[in-house]
């Protein structure tokens, strides 16, 4: 990076001459290099999917700890990048959710997200602190308004609500893929309908698998969770049979598309690669 060696990147309280804080950009870079995390807000719920790289080929995949965590039964989040940074943030989110529960109601998703984002932002302001090398996806259900939502908080503390959000290595192609899905209620084509959670699970599995190059990339475990009508608006891991079914479907789809591409134009190919 152009910033290294310039001396402006030593502290998150130092601005570079053109007004940037390199420490935040480094934190963002750490997220960009981590496994892909996707979130999709569907008609009847929210789906989260994480590509969890297995550091060692001999690891037992299921024991490596979840990247998607429940902050309370109604809200959940998935994180990307630095394990320690992510754990610290998840713990914080849990405490936040609990604090509001003291007032007798569940914390509204936007409030939880903006509180997490304020906390993350705080770590970009002090010379004694380092920004979090983690992006957070918050899937939550609002018991007051009966709406579900997906928020993403980035290392800079920026927090927005999304219909589809992506972080990590494959975020750019993943976004282009997700844009093709019908997730924006105001842009449903005539005669079409919003994507459902079960379809969302398959599509996310397909995106994660299509972005993965078995030859180049490390082996990974696909971790998925949802919060939907079917789960009683509670955050739950997607049952393993359903994930397995989705992966099978995804691999077949990718294979079919590959064959079609070989016959016709192969402009799709560029999109698939990083």
């Amino acid at each position: 990076m152009a910033s290294s060696g310039s001396g402006y990147d030593l502290s998150s309280s130092t601005f570079s001459p053109d007004g940037r804080i390199f420490q935040i950009e480094y934190a963002a870079k750490a997220v960009e290099n981590a496994g892909t995390a996707l979130g999709l807000r569907c008609a009847d719920g929210v789906v989260l999917a994480v590509e969890k790289p297995l550091v060692n080929r001999m690891l037992v995949a299921r024991t490596t700890g979840g990247y998607t965590r429940s902050t309370s039964t109604r809200a959940s989040r998935s994180r990307v990048s630095s394990a320690t940074a992510g754990r610290s943030l998840t713990g914080r989110g849990r405490r936040r959710a609990i604090t509001r529960r003291h007032h007798g109601t569940k914390i509204p998703p936007a409030t939880l997200s903006s509180r997490i984002s304020a906390y993350v932002h705080y770590f970009t302001l002090h010379g004694a602190l380092r920004p979090f090398g983690a992006s957070t996806l918050v899937a939550a259900y609002d018991t007051g308004t009966k709406r579900h939502s997906l928020h993403m908080i980035e290392p800079s503390g920026v927090c927005y609500e999304y219909y589809g959000a992506a972080a990590g290595r494959g975020r750019q192609p993943a976004r282009t893929e997700m844009e093709k899905l019908v997730v924006n209620p105001s842009r449903v084509p005539e005669g079409g309908e919003m994507i459902s959670v079960s379809e969302g699970v398959r599509q996310l599995a397909k995106i994660i698998h299509s972005l993965h190059d078995d030859a180049k990339d490390k082996p990974f475990e696909l971790e998925m969770s949802w919060l939907c009508e079917g789960s009683g608006w509670k955050h739950e891991g997607v049952p393993r049979e359903i994930i397995a079914g989705a992966v099978e479907w995804a691999k077949k789809e990718i294979e079919n598309e590959g064959e079609n591409d070989e016959e016709g134009d192969d402009d799709e190919d560029d999109e698939m690669e990083e």
Partner: peptide, 13 residues
């Protein structure tokens, strides 16, 4: 903070 009317429950708690 929440941008909506508080619940009576919250006031009571």
């Amino acid at each position: 903070e929440t941008g909506r009317l508080p619940e009576v429950k919250v006031a009571a708690h």
